[in-house]
Simulated scan of single mutants.
Amino acid sequence: MFNANQIFRHPAWRREDPDGVLLINSSDLSELGAKDGDWIAVESSVRRLVVRSKIDDAMRKGRLALPHGYGQAYPSPDGERLINGPRINLLTESGNRDPIAGTPYHKNVAIRLALVSAQEAAAYQSQSERIHKRSVGQ
């Protein structure tokens, strides 16, 4: 893991963005065949993550943003560990680094987007609901 920023607060603190959404221009999302709030895959040369999308037309076409600080595993009542939000460092290829400092380039990572199956989207939705239902005491 290369980005040291991690949110160590309970998911209930995240009222604005509980899942760590991918911000994307509406035309890019439409071209993919997805709509606002859909779960989509973000694929780099080393890893694939599934994230919730959110239209943000302040994003330039062809540019995306994923938040730092997510990816913490939280224990469920049955002992399973549920991951809340994208672990964005997993998209970073460790060999692509600054030649002097040796720091991997993690701010600009080449990725491609892909649709996910209905079954995979449902699994991520279910996990999100399990985390956030528990986090608000329901």
Score class of each variant (00 low, 15 high):
F2Y: 14
A4C: 06
A4F: 12
N5S: 03
N5G: 02
W13Q: 06
E16G: 05
D17A: 00
D17F: 01
V21S: 03
L22V: 12
L23D: 03
S27Q: 15
D28V: 14
D28N: 14
L32Y: 14
G33T: 01
D38E: 11
W39C: 10
I40K: 06
A41E: 15
S44P: 06
V46L: 08
V46S: 10
R47G: 00
L49G: 11
L49S: 14
S53Q: 07
I55W: 05
D56Q: 12
A58E: 15
A58F: 14
M59I: 05
K61A: 13
K61E: 12
A65F: 14
L66D: 02
P67M: 13
G69C: 09
Q72I: 03
P75S: 08
P75V: 03
D78C: 07
D78Q: 06
D78S: 12
L82F: 09
I83G: 07
P86R: 09
R87D: 13
I88Y: 00
N89R: 03
N89G: 15
T92F: 05
T92E: 00
T92M: 05
S94L: 14
N96W: 15
N96M: 06
R97P: 01
R97F: 07
T103H: 10
T103M: 06
T103L: 14
P104E: 04
Y105C: 03
I111H: 01
L113F: 01
V116R: 13
S117C: 09
A118D: 14
Y124P: 02
S126P: 00
Q127F: 00
S128Y: 12
S128M: 12
S128L: 00
S128Q: 00
H132E: 10
H132R: 05
V136T: 08
